[in-house]
Design a protein around this nucleic acid. Structure first.
Length: 414
RNA sequence: CGGGAGAUGUCAGAGUGGUCGAAUGUGCCGGUCUUGAAAACCGGUGAGGGUUAUACCUCCGGGGGUUCGAAUCCCCCUCUCCCGGCCA
């Protein structure tokens, strides 16, 4: 959630920032008005409550002194009745405010490049040269067919489209990758966690998936529970509604989880292969950081993900997202895109974001800064998406006959 | 899933309608004493909103109700523990 006090006190600056994320100035004016209204409503209500409280206290005193209370009771009854509409007004003001405030995206950092969509993202650097093939490299689904690695049809039979089954060597490769990722992250100080793959709505709201993106989530029938779309949700919300001591920071966490996404709105995109599935595996990094330290941790996380790709011998590029491509919760995001020779293009394999205090406000994650409580900064990033890494290995390590080499660093894991 | 008990500050634990944001112990912070530490003694010590700072409002698992007034009475929910069932 955005800082409403900041919006109120620096309206022009704030609205300029959010306009770049496609929020109309009108919406923000509305939000600002609602905030002002809420504060007024609360002030009036609280004054009335104060009066009620003091009269009630007096009432008790009269009773003890055995004095007559009829007159006082009449006053207190009248005030109580007058409070009803004030209460209603405050409740409505709060509801109206939160309805809009929870749908407001984060302020982008000042450093975020201008732009409308992914074409305006800024390439920061390329790492490793794509190798030149003496034959036409195949796409991963063709290679899958030759090696029997992925069973698309039976995955669909078991569930529905966009589900698949890995078999044999591919399945072992997946397991090896998960272990390699977790071990590497652990070496960088990220503590491994095993978390529930189902979380409740409060947690999903904390990280920003709810209420706005409910359609992207798989919900459990008749329960306030959702399959997690990323381990960012359970890891970040591990500290939901907590006040941490400053010396606990930074909390560096990593977890392997499956991720479940409805992929609503992406019909027709990446329908072949396992690039875009309803269920995929991912190893995630999450950091809960002191606000002064979040930038350096962000850079460390980007470097870590890039190092993993480098260790696997996978050519990739580091891309800074522009305003238009930035996600809902992110203040700044860097994507890693891996080279896929079969597709002849770079494809996203990791996305690392600093949400600053946006999620911390929603999830109420604070730390003690001396006497005061302050919101932490939360960061998240993939290291890495497992399925897409398999695709990348298949396409980059393919031989002319369709066989696939295993990267050197993974051999000890298989 | 069935039966029973419970949920209060860091923790333990009192409080069953007003003087309770909450006894007492413990932990933590500061001080006295000490060469230093421990012990002992003295003082401080929950959160959120609000204010320049006060005032003031809210919070005793969550929600609703009764009442002038609720930690305390009533209803619903959640969670924890114990017993039984089922089970990797």
């Amino acid at each position: 959630m955005i800082d409403l006090k900041y919006l109120q006190n620096n309206f022009n600056e704030a609205s300029a920032k959010l306009e770049k994320k496609g929020v109309e100035a009108k919406t923000l004016e509305n939000l600002q008005n609602l905030f002002t209204k809420l504060k007024e409503a609360n002030a009036t209500l609280e004054a009335s409550k104060a009066e009620q409280n003091s009269m009630s206290k007096l009432f008790g005193q009269y009773m003890r002194e055995k004095r007559d209370v009829t007159e006082l009771k009449a006053k207190v009854d009248a005030n109580k009745e007058a409070m009803v509409p004030l209460q209603e007004r405050a409740r409505e003001a709060e509801e109206a405010l939160f309805f809009i405030a929870l749908a407001m995206p984060n302020f982008p950092d000042d450093s975020v490049p201008e732009g409308a969509d992914e074409n305006d993202n800024v390439e920061l650097r390329k790492v490793l040269e794509p190798k030149t093939f003496t034959f036409k490299p195949k796409e991963h689904w063709e290679l899958s067919e030759i090696n029997g690695w992925i069973d698309f049809e039976r995955g669909v039979k078991l569930a529905k489209s966009r589900f698949s089954v890995l078999r044999g060597e591919a399945s072992r490769l997946e397991r090896a990758l998960i272990n390699f990722f977790l071990d590497t992250n652990a070496q960088k100080g990220f503590i491994e966690h095993s978390v529930p793959f189902i979380n409740n709505s409060t947690m999903l709201q904390g990280t920003g998936q709810l209420p706005k993106f409910e359609d992207d989530l798989f919900k459990i029938d008749d329960e306030d529970l959702y399959l997690i779309p990323t381990a960012e949700v359970p890891l970040t919300n591990l500290y939901n509604d907590e006040i941490l001591s400053e010396k606990m920071l930074p909390l560096l966490m990593t977890a392997y989880t499956p991720c479940f996404r409805k992929e609503a709105g992406s019909a027709g995109r990446d329908t072949r292969g396992i690039i875009r599935q309803h269920q995929f595996n991912k190893v995630e990094m999450v950091a809960i950081a002191h606000p002064d330290k979040s930038q350096e941790i962000f850079e460390m996380m980007v470097q870590n993900a890039s190092d993993i790709l480098t260790a696997l011998g996978l050519p990739h590029r580091v891309v800074e997202l522009c305003h238009g491509d930035l996600g809902f919760s992110a203040a700044t995001t860097i994507d890693l895109e891996v080279w896929l020779p079969g597709q002849n293009q770079y494809r996203e394999i990791s996305s690392i974001s600093n949400t600053r205090d946006f999620q911390a406000r929603r999830a109420k994650i604070r730390f003690k800064d001396g006497k005061k409580n302050r919101f932490v900064h939360t960061l998240n990033g993939s290291a890495l998406a497992v399925g897409r890494t398999i695709v990348a290995i298949m396409e980059n390590y393919q031989n002319e006959d369709g066989s696939i080499e295993i990267p050197e660093v993974l051999k000890k894991y298989m």
